[in-house]
């Protein structure tokens, strides 16, 4: 089976966000880039599934973005154990719809049997691409998945997804299907130094948006007028014994802040 995992390069969670002076986006020059944390769970599940199948199945990592920068995230995926890697080169930032359409077209060409992604990317926080890909390819999907199991005949997957208030939904999907991974699905492995070195020499296949038939009309939304959140009004530190602190804060919440 051809297993695919879509990965995205995002700013490290430690990044202090700065806005471009024209408000069109964030400043990227000082950003340290990492693999989207939820994609790490997707990569791990793809590799685990391949290794369990042990039938010649392969895992291909796929990303979209400016290739000069984002092939790095594919090197990480290769170092973790992915067999192949493909970059869809795009210098401009695409919205979720155009991104999903481009990824879908690439997946269609490749006859993917199983597609893993993180449930959301921690940059734009849209939580859309797994579902969008599934809709484009007319496949079943499940997102926010915390358990994944393939049936013995490889025709179905049973997944557990997390809903609100601790509710768990158990779904059965026929393959091919799209899985959005949540934290808790597995414990991602670390890449070994020899594998990191080997990954540097592996070939990365390239596609471009024109080849995939992506045009301006595939873009459905635009983000603009970026701002930093308004600064919080200065707070205050309360003084006194533990008993004083407790009674003061409760009184302030009732009488000053009026929130209880």
């Amino acid at each position: 089976m051809k297993i695919f995992v879509c990965v995205k390069q995002v700013p490290d969670t430690e990044t202090k966000i700065k806005i471009k002076s024209d408000g069109s986006g964030i400043e990227t020059q000082d950003v340290k880039w990492i693999m989207n944390p939820y994609d790490e769970f997707a990569v791990e599940e793809a590799l685990k599934t391949r290794d369990k199948l042990a039938d010649g199945s392969t895992v291909t990592a796929l990303t979209l973005g400016p290739k000069a920068r984002c092939t790095e995230v594919l090197r990480t995926a290769l170092a973790l154990g992915c067999d192949n890697a493909i970059v869809i080169d795009s210098t401009e930032t695409l919205d979720t719809s155009a991104t999903a359409r481009a990824l879908s077209e690439a997946l269609k060409k490749e006859d993917a049997g199983l597609i893993f992604l993180g449930k959301q990317a921690i940059d734009d926080d849209c939580s859309q691409v797994p579902q969008l890909i599934a809709a484009h390819l007319e496949l079943p999907h499940a997102s926010v998945v915390v358990k994944f199991e393939l049936s013995a005949d490889k025709s179905k997957a049973t997944v557990e997804r997390e809903s609100e208030g601790g509710t768990k939904e158990i779904l059965e999907l026929s393959l091919p299907c799209v899985i959005g991974a949540n934290k808790g699905l597995n414990t991602p492995r670390f890449a070994s130094l020899p594998n990191i070195m080997k990954a540097k020499k592996k070939e990365i296949a390239e596609l471009n948006l024109a080849q995939l038939g992506i045009s301006e009309t595939d873009t459905k939304t635009r983000h603009y007028e970026f701002q930093l959140p308004p600064p919080r009004p200065a707070g205050r530190t309360l003084e006194g014994s533990a008993a004083d602190l407790a009674s003061q804060v409760v009184k302030l919440l009732r009488e000053e802040a009026k929130v209880i």
Binding site: P11, T15, K16, I17, I19, I26, I122, D123, D124, D125, E216, T217, D218, T219, K220, T221, R222, H223, Y224, E225, F226, Q227, L228, P229
Partner: peptide
């Protein structure tokens, strides 16, 4: 809407929809 889990906010508009 917020992005970067609230480290920034932005406006969003729709097109081709």
């Amino acid at each position: 809407r917020p992005l970067y889990s609230g480290k920034a906010t932005a406006s969003i508009e729709f097109k081709n929809s």
